[in-house]
Design a protein around this nucleic acid. Structure first.
Lengths: 189, 189
DNA sequence: ACATTTATATGATGATCATCATATTTAGTG
DNA sequence: CACTAAATATGATGATCATCATATAAATGT
């Protein structure tokens, strides 16, 4: 049945929200269009009224979850601690979309990769701005280097089945990054 | 037709090699059993004489490629430079299996995750041993922290479509890690 | 040489899934 | 208050694929 214009907008958002959680939780391939629609409280038939294809849904979902992640203007230390916590590691569906989906985006359409590019760009900018004590070049290097380490650590910690080693990966990476964020010339080797 | 015992052993290895390259190149899901067998010069029917399932193939392939990666007793600086090079980023099929597959292993069977765990453990040990100038605790922290950053940087660099930003992610991460590998107390904040 | 075993090839089968066709029902509109 | 357009539901369709069944033919042991 037809629904009101605003209901349709809300339905679209519910689909994106459901897809965002499901994709992060189970990966793009393991989630069917019908499953997303069901999680959004709809049936599969209406899907193509909102999106042209599953690939289109993936690209738009990625844009949605990367944009939602934009907050975090706060303390970089707190952000780091939270990011590298067991809690975040275990929170697939609600965790950082970059940690959850970046590796899979490599195999996706050009549209999805373009969305990822802009998401990463703004994440780097945001992180850099949170490090005001560094000069411009150090800021950018610290933002990129520490975000790479954060994403890598969460991916590694999630890939293994030994909780002790997994916790250690998070904790040691946290200490390693905290040791490197403070101002220091790159050639202090 | 039946083949000699040694031929069968060789065939098994060819399957693992082909699967190792294909999985790294296209991901576990996008590679069919028939495609792997064809790349190994066989047809799909013989597959179940070697492996009990595709999941079994995935776990055994992971063990194979992670073990093959074991060399590298050399200079950690050279390893780092190579790992964070555009050449390695673009070499999906032959590149580091951890960078290529770790994120997908999270969604795999317990057997595959167990293999990944041991692979990561030995990788950390190997990297730590390559940093003899650090004391034990710093060594382990540097090994884990720098490997997380390396894996994260390659994954991020591969996920985006802007070559300039992608190169920058690699290069800045390289400088960031090199700035942090030298002996320094973790609390030099 | 022959018999037997067995690795591989050829050829189903059944499930899953993206996508499409059509029906239904209700929001907008005049 | 109808009428029409449109959003969603129900119900195909065709493709892909993991797995299995059976056939073939060559290796191995006697």
């Amino acid at each position: 049945m037809k629904v009101s214009r605003e209901q349709m907008v809300e339905n679209r958002l519910r689909i994106l929200e459901a897809a965002g959680r499901l994709f992060r939780d189970k990966g793009f391939d393991a989630v069917s269009v019908a499953e997303v629609m069901k999680a959004a409280g709809l049936t599969h038939g209406g899907f193509y009224g909102h999106f042209t294809s599953k690939n289109d849904l993936i690209a738009q979902t990625l844009a949605h979850v990367l944009a939602a992640n934009t907050g975090e203007g706060g303390d970089p230390r707190a952000y780091l601690d939270d990011y590298l916590s067991p809690r975040h590691r275990d929170n697939y569906a609600g965790g950082c979309p970059t940690a959850g989906l970046a590796a899979a985006v490599r195999l996706q359409t050009p549209a999805a990769r373009a969305v990822m590019t802009e998401g990463l760009r703004s994440q780097i900018d945001r992180l850099g701005k949170a490090l005001p004590e560094l000069d411009a070049a150090d800021k950018r290097r610290a933002a990129i280097g520490s975000f790479a380490a954060m994403v890598g650590a969460v991916i590694l910690a999630r890939s293994i089945d030994d909780p002790t080693l997994s916790d250690e990966v998070l904790e040691q990476t946290r200490e390693w990054i905290e040791g490197g964020i403070s101002p220091q010339p790159a050639n202090a080797r």
